[in-house]
Measured scan of single mutants.
Amino acid sequence: DVEPGKFYKGVVTRIEKYGAFINLNEQVRGLLRPRDMISLRAENLNVGDEIIVQAIDVRPEKREIDFKYIP
């Protein structure tokens, strides 16, 4: 289970104008929005990159997770 405030290692699987999709594993995926990329620009991300993200909002009923990148 993903808990708000905890840090996780994930892999960038898709990049859109509104953010990057980060997979923690095959069943868990969330969104890293540009406003939550402190000191990281979306254009510096590539599909396949491994990054550490913090879960900031977890909505299990919608199967949605928002992440924040903190260097």
Results as ranks from 00 to 15, higher is better:
Thr13Gly: 04
Gly10Met: 05
Asn46Trp: 10
Val58Phe: 07
Tyr8Lys: 00
Asn46His: 15
Phe7Leu: 07
Asp49Trp: 06
Lys68Gln: 09
Gly19Ala: 05
Val53Ser: 00
Ile22Thr: 00
Asp49Leu: 08
Lys9Gln: 08
Asn46Phe: 10
Val47Tyr: 02
Ser39Trp: 14
Gln27Met: 13
Phe7Tyr: 11
Phe67Asn: 03
Val11Leu: 08
Ile15Thr: 03
Leu24Trp: 02
Gly10Ser: 01
Leu24Asp: 01
Lys6Leu: 07
Arg41Asp: 10
Arg29Pro: 05
Met37Val: 07
Ile51Met: 03
Phe67Ser: 02
Lys68Arg: 15
Asp36Trp: 10
Phe67Leu: 09
Ser39Phe: 15
Gly19Gln: 07
Met37Arg: 03
Glu3His: 12
Ser39Tyr: 14
Gly19Phe: 10
Ile22Cys: 02
Asn44Pro: 08
Asn23Pro: 00
Leu31Lys: 06
Asp1Lys: 13
Ile51Gly: 00
Ala42Lys: 14
Val12His: 00
Arg29Ala: 10
Lys6Ile: 07
Asn25His: 07
Ile56Pro: 01
Gly10Pro: 00
Phe21Cys: 08
Asn44Thr: 13
Glu26Asn: 13
Asn25Ile: 08
Arg29Lys: 10
Glu61Lys: 09
Glu61Pro: 05
Phe67Tyr: 04
Val11Ile: 14
Arg14Glu: 04
Ile51Trp: 01
Pro60Lys: 09
Gln27Asp: 12
Val11Pro: 00
Arg14Lys: 10
Val58Glu: 02
Asn46Leu: 10
Ser39Ile: 11
Ala20Glu: 01
Gln54Arg: 04
Tyr69Val: 07
Val53Cys: 03
Tyr18Pro: 02
Asp36Cys: 11
Gln27Asn: 14
Leu45Ser: 00
Asn25Asp: 08
Pro71Gln: 10
Tyr69Thr: 04
Glu64Gly: 07
Glu64Arg: 08
Arg14Ala: 11
Ala42Tyr: 15
Arg14Tyr: 05
Val11Lys: 09
Gly5Phe: 05
Gly30His: 02
Arg59Asp: 07
Glu61Ser: 11
Asn44Met: 14
Phe67Gln: 05
Val28Pro: 02
Pro34Glu: 12
Tyr8Glu: 01
Ala55Phe: 08
Lys62Thr: 11
Asp57Pro: 03
Lys9Ile: 12
Lys62Gln: 10
Ile15Met: 06
Phe21Asp: 01
Asp49Gly: 02
Phe21Lys: 01
Ile56Cys: 09
Leu32Pro: 03
Pro34Gly: 12
Asn25Leu: 08
Arg33Pro: 05
Lys68His: 06
Val47Pro: 05
Tyr18Asn: 07
Asp36Thr: 02
Tyr69Gly: 03
Glu50Arg: 12
Arg33Gln: 06
Glu61Thr: 08
Lys68Val: 10
Tyr18Val: 09
Met37Glu: 04
Arg14Gln: 11
Pro60Gly: 08
Pro4Tyr: 07
Gln27Gly: 12
Asp1Asn: 13
Leu31Asn: 04
Ala42Arg: 12
Glu26Tyr: 11
Asp1Ser: 14
Val2Tyr: 08
Phe67Arg: 02
Val58Ile: 09
Val53Tyr: 01
Ala20Phe: 11
Arg14Pro: 01
Val11Asp: 00
Lys6Ser: 06
Ala42His: 13
Gly19Asp: 03
Lys9Thr: 09
Ile15His: 01
Asn23Phe: 09
Arg35Pro: 06
Lys62Pro: 05
Asn23Tyr: 12
Arg14Trp: 07
Ser39Ala: 13
Lys9Cys: 15
Leu40Tyr: 04
Pro71Val: 09
Glu26Ser: 14
Leu31Tyr: 03
Val53Pro: 00
Leu40Gly: 07
Arg63Val: 06
Val28Arg: 02
Val58Thr: 06
Glu3Val: 15
Phe7Asp: 02
Leu40Met: 11
Asp36Phe: 09
Gly10Gln: 00
Ile22Glu: 01
Val47Ala: 03
Ile51His: 00
Ser39Asp: 14
Ile15Arg: 02
Ile70Asn: 09
Lys6Val: 07
Ile65Val: 09
Pro4Glu: 10
Ile70Leu: 11
Val2Glu: 02
Ile38Cys: 14
Phe67Lys: 02
Arg41Asn: 11
Leu32Lys: 02
Val28Lys: 02
Ala20His: 03
Gly19Lys: 07
Asn44Ile: 09
Arg29Glu: 09
Val11Asn: 02
Phe67Thr: 04
Ser39Gly: 15
Phe67Val: 05
Asn25Glu: 05
Ile56Ser: 05
Tyr69Trp: 09
Asp36Glu: 05
Glu50Asn: 09
Asn25Ala: 08
Phe21Leu: 10
Leu24Ser: 01
Val28Glu: 04
Glu50Cys: 15
Lys62Phe: 09
Ile51Phe: 03
Phe7Cys: 13
Lys6Glu: 07
Gln27Ser: 14
Met37Trp: 06
Asp57Asn: 15
Gly19Glu: 06
Ile51Cys: 01
Val28Tyr: 08
Pro60Glu: 07
Glu16Gln: 06
Pro4Lys: 15
Arg29His: 10
Phe7Ser: 06
Arg41Ala: 12
Pro34Asn: 15
Leu32Gln: 02
Phe21Arg: 01
Val58Gln: 04
Phe67His: 03
Arg35Ile: 11
Gly30Leu: 06
Glu26Leu: 11
Ile15Asp: 01
Lys9Gly: 02
Leu40Ser: 07
Lys62Met: 12
Val53Lys: 00
Lys68Asp: 03
Gly30Arg: 02
Pro60Asn: 08
Arg63Thr: 07
Tyr18Glu: 10
Pro4Cys: 13
Val47Ile: 13
Lys9Asn: 06
Leu40Ile: 13
Asp1Gln: 13
Lys9His: 11
Ile65Phe: 07
Pro71Gly: 14
Arg33Phe: 05
Glu26Thr: 13
Val47Glu: 04
Gly10Phe: 05
Glu43Trp: 11
Gly5Leu: 06
Val53Trp: 02
Pro71Ala: 14
Val2Asp: 02
Lys68Glu: 05
Gly48Asn: 02
Glu43Gly: 11
Val47Arg: 02
Arg29Ile: 13
Tyr18Trp: 15
Asn44Gly: 13
Ala42Leu: 15
Arg33Val: 09
Val2Cys: 06
Asn23Lys: 14
Pro4Ala: 12
Ile51Val: 09
Glu43Gln: 10
Phe67Met: 04
Tyr69Cys: 07
Ile51Asp: 00
Pro71Tyr: 09
Val2Thr: 03
Glu50Gly: 05
Leu45Glu: 00
Leu32His: 02
Ala55Asn: 01
Asp66His: 10
Arg41Thr: 12
Leu32Thr: 02
Gly5Lys: 04
Val12Phe: 01
Gly19Leu: 09
Glu3Phe: 12
Glu16Phe: 12
Arg29Leu: 09
Val2Leu: 08
Gln54Gly: 02
Pro4Asp: 05
Ile51Lys: 00
Glu3Trp: 09
Glu50Val: 15
Pro4Ser: 09
Tyr8Met: 01
Asn23Leu: 10
Lys62Trp: 08
Val2Gln: 03
Ile65Thr: 03
Ala55Lys: 01
Ile52Ala: 02
Val53Leu: 07
Lys9Tyr: 10
Leu32Glu: 03
Gly5Asn: 06
Lys68Cys: 12
Lys17Gly: 08
Val58Pro: 03
Pro60Ala: 10
Leu31Thr: 06
Asn46Ala: 14
Glu50Gln: 11
Val2Pro: 05
Leu40Lys: 06
Gly10Glu: 01
Leu24Glu: 01
Ile52His: 04
Asn46Ile: 09
Asp66Lys: 11
Ile51Leu: 09
Gly30Asn: 02
Ser39His: 14
Gly5Ile: 02
Gly10Asp: 01
Tyr18Ser: 06
Ile70Phe: 11
Gly10Leu: 05
Gln54Met: 15
Lys17Phe: 11
Ser39Val: 10
Gly30Cys: 10
Pro60Ser: 09
Lys17Ala: 12
Val11Glu: 03
Glu16Asn: 14
Arg41Ser: 13
Gly19Ile: 10
Leu24Met: 03
Met37Ala: 06
Leu40Gln: 05
Phe67Ala: 03
Tyr8Arg: 01
